[in-house]
Amino acid sequence: MSATTTRAVPGRAKDHQVSRALGRRRHRTNRVIKGLCIAATVIGVLLLASILATLVWRGAAGLSLSVFTHITRPPGSDGGLLNAIAGTLIQTAIGTAIGTPIGLMVGTYLAEYGRTSALANAVRFVSDVLLSAPSILIGLFIYQLAVQPFGGFSGIAGCLALAVIVIPIVVRTTEDMLQLISPALREAAVALGAPRWKVIVLICYRAAKDGIVTGILLAVARIAGETAPLLFTSLGNSSATGTLDTPMASLPVAIYQYAGSAFDDWVQLAWVGALLITVGVLLINIIARFAIRGRS
């Protein structure tokens, strides 16, 4: 008995020492990694700040009334971006108008009708793939579908390409939001004798309204800044505005064409356009996020 204690005393002290050293090492590792994580987050936030600062710094200098009142003109003649801004508004509006009802119905099908059936699972899978599919391929697809057969680039082809991008975004949020609604709400309506479609349209849509609107806003923000699908569909246009059967200008495409040009005033216009589109897109995003927040 006494033998064990005499041997154990130095042992225990040593254990203590070892464990203290180990503990120090563990906590040091912890601190280092915590520091690295904070650094990573700071880098992430700084990147956003750098992009915004660059846009404001380069774009604000060229911001003037003529940007909004003049259409694009040859270099050196005080052109604006009126036709590009109008084109982006028109194409975004029509693209959203085409894509939203389809996406809404698909989301409704997934949440209310198909659920876990084989068809619904296939639709869900395909919609998720479309959500992240390269947008340039959607441009090529619409080129094959609506540009080549009709012999020319057109604003409406651009709208179609954007609509294809809208659909999966609206599907995702609509399905998620409809699934959040409690079954009791539906059952109460059904018990009153309401037909199913009325339950969905009058009860479920209304209950999920905020979430669905958020989805639509996010879709608008996404397509307003899309460039690649428009290169092969609406192409861009330096003069006419408003006609859907001819090539149509848009802000992102104008930015793309001007940013790579050799003329200083065109590059300046590209920065102004970039500032406008980014501020618009980020504002819509922030508004959409507040809508979600109000809900949850």
């Binding site: 209310e112 009708y113 479309l130 479609w197």
Partner: peptide
């Protein structure tokens, strides 16, 4: 109204499948 709405929803679902199918096919 019910079959119409259900059919519309189901049809939109099938449209999405066709969309991806024709995208692959056209490329």
């Amino acid at each position: 109204g019910d079959p119409l709405f259900a059919g519309l929803a189901r049809g939109s679902g099938i449209l999405v499948l066709l969309l991806l199918g024709s995208l692959i096919l056209s490329l």
